[in-house]
Design a protein around this nucleic acid. Structure first.
Length: 110
DNA sequence: GATGTGACTGACC
DNA sequence: TGGTCAGCCACAT
């Protein structure tokens, strides 16, 4: 919303709006920002999200529900722990019942 | 100013 | 049925 920031800021805001116990995908965020084909950029934005500790990057996974970015956390297991702490089942670095936990900003946000 | 890279996605072989 | 290829845009060097 702020001009001073790039779409990175928008990504952060969307991620921070993810309800507890829910997850979303890079493509969903990109789609919400008007770049459904630039899911890569969303992931790239998450890489910079480390500057904002308030961004629950652990709630962002790829479209299959795999914790692709877990390796970017302090510890690879940290991402799974955070998800399990929110009652989200994770097995073999993949979210179980991903559809059930999936949170689409395009649908949930106005 | 150009080139390379990336936490993805969808389509093709 | 599964693996591989190319496209996508913004940021860093």
């Amino acid at each position: 919303m702020s001009q001073r920031s790039s779409f990175f800021q928008d990504v952060y805001e969307v991620v921070m709006l993810i309800p507890e116990g829910r997850v979303t995908s890079y493509g969903a965020i990109g789609k919400y920002l008007g770049m459904p084909s630039s899911a890569r950029m969303v992931g790239w934005a998450m890489n910079a999200s480390h500057t904002l500790p308030k961004v629950p990057a652990h709630r962002v996974v790829n479209r299959v529900g795999v914790l692709t970015g877990k390796h970017f956390f302090e510890t690879p297991s940290r991402m799974q722990e955070l998800l399990e702490a929110e009652n989200i089942k994770v097995d073999n670095d993949q979210i179980q019942r991903f559809e059930y936990f999936f949170w689409d900003p395009v649908k949930e946000l106005p």
